[in-house]
Design a binder for these strands. Structure first.
Lengths: 240, 240
DNA sequence: CGTTCTCTTGATGGGTCTCAATATGCGTGG
DNA sequence: CCACGCATATTGAGACCCATCAAGAGAACG
C-alpha cells in the first residue's frame, strides 16, 4: 500500500531533464498566487540542521550547498540554478543537513509541503511523460553526486573545470539563459575552486590557459564557449 | 494519492543506522525460503545499464560499484558490505547504471521487487521505529555521497584513508565482524586507491606511515585499530 | 612450480598548493 | 563625484604532495 505507488515511478529512469528542476508540474495559476521572495547574495536559504516545512524553487539567481571545515576548507556539494528545486529530499526529511547560501542576488518561490502533497494527489498518473516526480529529482541528485565523485577522484584540474563549465551551460540551457553559447556565469574563482576541489589560484591559471587556447572567454560575469568541442574533449573521456 | 505515503516517511531523518542495509525488515522465515547465491570474486553482480527485477542483499563478502574511464582510470563509487542492500534505487529505476563487482567471494540473497512490494504492503506503519525504508536507504546513500565529495575535494591522502578505515570499521560493527577493534579488510591497495582517489603506490606509503605511527595494523586481510583516537584525528576535522 | 597478483621501495618529475605582492573593480559613504 | 575599503583577479616563486615509472620480493593460485 505504501510501496505500490513508489514502484509505479519506474518510468523515470530515462528522464531527459538536464536540471534538478524536475520536481513537479506547476500550473501557472498556482504559481501566480505563490509568494515570491528576494534573497540577497551571501544570505542563507538554509542553515545546518535547520527544520523546514517548505521547498524553494529558484526563479532567478544561483545558490549552493556547502560544507565548511573548522580550518577554513570549504567544499561545495551542490549548485542550484534557475528552475531548480533546492534539496528535494527536504520533503522526505523535513530537515536541511547542510547550509545553502545565495551566490548571487536571487528570486525564489516557496512551496509548502502540503501544497506538494495536495498537488500530487490531484495529479493522477494519466500523464506518463509530462509529470516529473520528487523521486526523479532525488535520483537526479544521486547521479550528479556520482559524477562528481568520479571527477574529484580521478580527473585533473583542467578536466574538472572543463566538465563543470560544460555542465553549467547545459543546465542553464532549459531556462533560456544560453544564447549562442553565451551565458551568465556569476561564480567567483573562489566558488569554482570550492566546487572542483582545487585552489582558487590554480583555477585562475587553468582559466588563463583555456582563454589562451581560445576555448572559452570569461569576463564580466559572462561565459562564452568559443570551442565547445574542444571543451568537451578537455572535460575528460566518457565513462565505459 | 502517490505522494501521501511518501510524505509519511518523515520520521527517517534521524535514523541511526550505520550501514546501507536499512531497506526493509525481513522476517527470518521469509529469509529461509529465499535463494542464496555464491558469487566468486571479480564476478559482476550487475553490468552497466543492465535491467533487473530484484535486489541483492549481501550476506557475506564485499562488493563495489565503480566507473571505468577508457584510459584505465577507475573510481569506486560505492562499497557494499555484509548486511547492505545493493543499490536500493534499483527498485525505482529497474536499472543498474554502473557495474557492480564482487571484491571477495560472496554470498548474496536475491529479493524480487514484487516481494518488497508485498512485504511493504503487509507492514502498516504501526511500527514507527522498527521499520526502515527504501527511501531511508536512498537518503543514506545521498549522505554517504556528500561525505565522499567533501573527502575527495578537500582532504589529503592521509585524511581520506583514515576516514575510510574508520568508516569501514563502523559499518562492519553492526554485522558483528568487529571484535575489539579487529576486523576483516579484504580490499587490496588498488581497491583502496580507487576509493580514495589516489594512486596505489601512495596508498602503500600512507599505510606504512600509519603502521609506523602505531595507529593501525593491517596484514593478512585483517585490520586492527591500535589507536582509534589518533585515527579519527588523522581522518580530518569534523564539519562545521 | 611457474604464473599472476599483490605489496614494497626507490628515484624522478609534475601538478598543484601556499605565500605574497600587485592590480582591478565595485559598493559605500562622505 | 571622489575617496576609501573590500572583494576579486592576476602573476611569480618556491615547496610539497602525490603520480609515474621501474624493479624486486612475497604470496596466492592453478
Amino acid at each position: 500500500m505504501i510501496f505500490a505507488p513508489v514502484l509505479r515511478l519506474t518510468s523515470f529512469h530515462q528522464e531527459t531533464s538536464s536540471g534538478t528542476g524536475v520536481l513537479i508540474m506547476i500550473s501557472t495559476t498556482a504559481e501566480m498566487t505563490r509568494a515570491r521572495y528576494e534573497i540577497r547574495r551571501h544570505k542563507h536559504l538554509a542553515r545546518r540542521h535547520e527544520h523546514t516545512d517548505r521547498l524553494f524553487r529558484i526563479e532567478d539567481g544561483w545558490a549552493c550547498q556547502y560544507r565548511l571545515l573548522p580550518d577554513g576548507r570549504r567544499q561545495i556539494i551542490a549548485l542550484f540554478l534557475p528552475g531548480d528545486y533546492c534539496e528535494a529530499q527536504w520533503v522526505l526529511t523535513g530537515q536541511a543537513n547542510w547550509p545553502i547560501v545565495a551566490l548571487t542576488d536571487m528570486f525564489v518561490t516557496e512551496i509548502p509541503f502540503h501544497d506538494i502533497r495536495a498537488r500530487h494527489a490531484a495529479h493522477n498518473s494519466q500523464e506518463p511523460d509530462g509529470m516529473k516526480s520528487l523521486l526523479g529529482s532525488i535520483m537526479h541528485t544521486l547521479k550528479s553526486h556520482e559524477k562528481w565523485i568520479v571527477n574529484l577522484g580521478r580527473m585533473s584540474a583542467t578536466e574538472r573545470i572543463c566538465a563543470l563549465l560544460h555542465d553549467l551551460v547545459e543546465r542553464l540551457r532549459p531556462s533560456g539563459k544560453v544564447v549562442s553559447n553565451h551565458c551568465p556565469m556569476p561564480l567567483t574563482q573562489y566558488d569554482l575552486a570550492d566546487i572542483v576541489g582545487i585552489s582558487s589560484v590554480h583555477v585562475n591559471r587553468v582559466l588563463q590557459m583555456l582563454r589562451g587556447e581560445g576555448v572559452i572567454s570569461l569576463e564580466a560575469g559572462r561565459l562564452a564557449l568559443l570551442n565547445p568541442v574542444e571543451l568537451r574533449r578537455l572535460g575528460g573521456p566518457a565513462h565505459v
